[in-house]
Amino acid sequence: MKIYDAGKVIAGLIIFFVVFTFPVYYNHGKVEPAPKPSLETEKIQSLYEKNCVEDKATMRSGHMLLLDKWRDTVVRDRLRSYAGFKGTRFEMSLSNTCMDCHSNKEQFCDACHNYAGVTPYCWECHLTPKEMK
């Protein structure tokens, strides 16, 4: 088999490979430790039972899906009350429920979001605890 323009093709492939794998070797050996979201807020400390609306594992992996469902349910189905996994009732509200306990947005939300390189646009409209005071 003959490759036409072999020189150009191979050079192109090499350049592609180098660029494509750039993040791998650029970041090699520079592991940043995953941040631990802080639970140190007055409200959480004062709670007798420190439970979120779902268990920790669910919240950690699926809080964005939960919030997405919440917003559709509140806006489109006009239902605002949610039964937490322990049976407690919560208002489905990012600003008023989630951020009421997790009032430390910088240490709780942003730390992980920055680490994971995601920029949720919730805060373009919804108010942060600082903005609400």
């Binding site: 349910t73 239902l79 039964a83 489905m92």
Partner: peptide
């Protein structure tokens, strides 16, 4: 696939 409603979704008590 994630179509289900949030658990126990209901109006608030005083709505």
């Amino acid at each position: 696939a994630l179509g289900a409603k949030p658990r126990g979704a209901a109006p608030l008590d005083n709505a």
